[in-house]
Design a protein around this nucleic acid. Structure first.
Length: 431
RNA sequence: GCGGCUAUAGUUCAGUGGCAGAACGCCGCUCUGUGGCAGCGGAUGUCGUGGGUUCGAAACCCACUAGCCGCCCCA
């Protein structure tokens, strides 16, 4: 047999029209919302020094230990150094690296940065989970004197996300949040958790027995029905927060209440990345995503800059799984009706009208209208068929129209037909 | 990375060893100044890929690939 066709590699995919219209709508809505909150765009490289992720995301996390696309970049000249490079599995570490590298903290100002771009993790693909996937994210970071640590930043981010999801037309999202405490609270809690798990471990399901040893925080995430009572009886992170973290979290909640953003505090919400401190959160949605129901997640990372060798720079950020957002929108059937139609379809009647049709199309397109042009060999009936699929109006160009410069325009939605002078066409077709 | 299910026309799917099918969609004609209806006609295709069993394989067996579901993890 002939050699097999080359196909998109596992876990990657092509995005084609009309679906790309939806992607563009999501991205432009995100940009518009972000700019109202004072965020500016940052674009960081798609690959970075491997140690950035090892130190930032955490050597022990699954992302770093099993899922990264890493390769040795060989030195090709004596003046170059060989180094290990990695396709970014997330974008926060890169943003913080850039913050440090460009001394953005020296301005003394709070930095509000957003990004939109592909990320890479070598996981088994599934619905809503791809090896190249897209994240829309934002970070608020700055020196402590800039107010980067303030609970109002946490609440502002969460309120902004609620607004963004609403404007995108995502209905029925839920926000869960929790505080995982300071960098010292967390190890104390993990120790207490291990201690509490030791005597009851044998009563748990095999999965949870394994987690109890390897990653006790993950036990809290378990969906195993039979284990729920035991899990609920485990120590709560809230009891291990120092006074400052506790008060910080309370202020976040108070600000959310004031804004009317609905949320539930979930003391069992834990996140896998090592850098998270204090506020962590997750927006989820039940429609269209199967088991990958987290739309976006994020949290505070007050120690990340120092972990990367930078100055003290508390911050908070989030990452939206754009692929999942799109799936949810599609599942909500928002899309079928929203596939964007062109403003007009120009139907020349007979090949003699073709030049005039193209000339009219040029005028209309230059005035910003979206226009498709038929060709005069089509019969009128066929033009109507083609036009109705593509456009909101059909403009007929026959002998009458060309001699009078008054065009016959039919609007599909209303079945209304009018005679429109050429000068008025742009206005009429925009409606 | 682990366990399971699936892969047939553009789409959704039927087809358990004997001619490759249905619906929708698509194309043409009835029908060269008004479409969506109707009638008639047409094309759908390496049956995921490669191998094997068999007189004969879309079907049975093996391997591979991909997708989906669950786990793991996370967005």
């Amino acid at each position: 047999m002939a050699s097999p066709n080359i196909k998109a590699v596992r876990g990657t995919r092509d995005l084609l029209p009309p679906e790309t219209d939806l992607w563009n709508r999501v991205e432009s809505t995100a940009r518009a919302v972000f700019s109202r909150y004072g965020f500016g765009e940052i674009r960081t490289p798609i690959f970075e020094d491997t140690s950035l992720f090892a130190r930032g995301v955490g050597e022990e996390t699954d992302i770093v230990s099993k899922e990264m696309y890493t390769w040795e970049d060989r030195a090709r000249a004596a003046s170059e150094k060989a180094q290990s490079l990695t396709l970014r599995p997330e974008n926060t570490a890169g943003v913080v690296r850039a913050y440090i590298e460009h001394k953005l903290g020296d301005t003394g100002n709070l930095q509000k940065l957003f990004y939109i771009g592909p990320q890479f993790r070598r996981e088994r693909p599934q619905r809503g989970r791809y090896r190249q996937f897209w994240q829309i994210g934002a970070e608020v970071i700055g020196p402590p004197t800039s107010g980067a640590e303030s609970p109002i930043r946490d609440a502002e981010i969460l309120e902004m996300l609620a607004t963004l999801l609403d404007e995108l037309g995502i209905t029925g999202w839920t926000l869960q949040l929790n505080s995982v405490g300071s960098a010292t609270d967390r190890p104390r809690y993990v120790a207490a958790l291990k201690e509490a798990l030791a005597p009851i471990k044998h009563q748990l399901c095999p999965d949870n027995q394994r987690r109890a040893d390897t990653n006790p925080l993950r036990v809290l995430d378990s969906k195993d029905e039979a284990d729920q009572d035991l899990i609920n009886a485990l120590p709560k992170i809230a009891d291990f927060l120092d006074a400052e973290s506790k008060s910080h979290f309370e202020q976040v909640l108070a600000a959310l209440d004031a804004c009317g953003v609905p949320y539930t505090v979930n003391p069992r919400l834990v996140r896998g990345l090592d850098y998270y401190t204090r506020t962590t959160f997750e927006f989820s949605h039940s429609v269209g995503l199967g088991s990958q129901n987290a739309l976006l997640g994020g949290g505070r990372y007050d120690g990340l800059s120092e972990m990367l060798g930078g100055p003290r720079a508390p911050g908070i950020g989030f990452a939206i799984g754009e692929d999942r957002l799109i799936l949810t929108l599609q599942a909500q059937a928002e899309t079928a009706a929203q596939t964007t139609k062109l403003d007009a379809y120009l139907a020349p009647l007979g090949i003699a009208s073709n030049p005039a049709a193209l000339s009219l199309a040029r005028d209309l397109r230059r005035q910003g209208l979206s226009v498709e042009v038929g060709d005069g060999s089509f019969r009128l009936k066929k033009s109507f068929d083609a036009a109705d699929k593509l456009a909101r109006h059909i403009v007929l160009l026959g002998e009458d129209e060309l001699s009078t410069n008054i065009f016959t325009v039919k609007t599909f939605a209303t079945a209304e037909q009018k005679k429109i002078p050429r000068a008025d066409l742009p206005t009429h077709l925009r409606t």
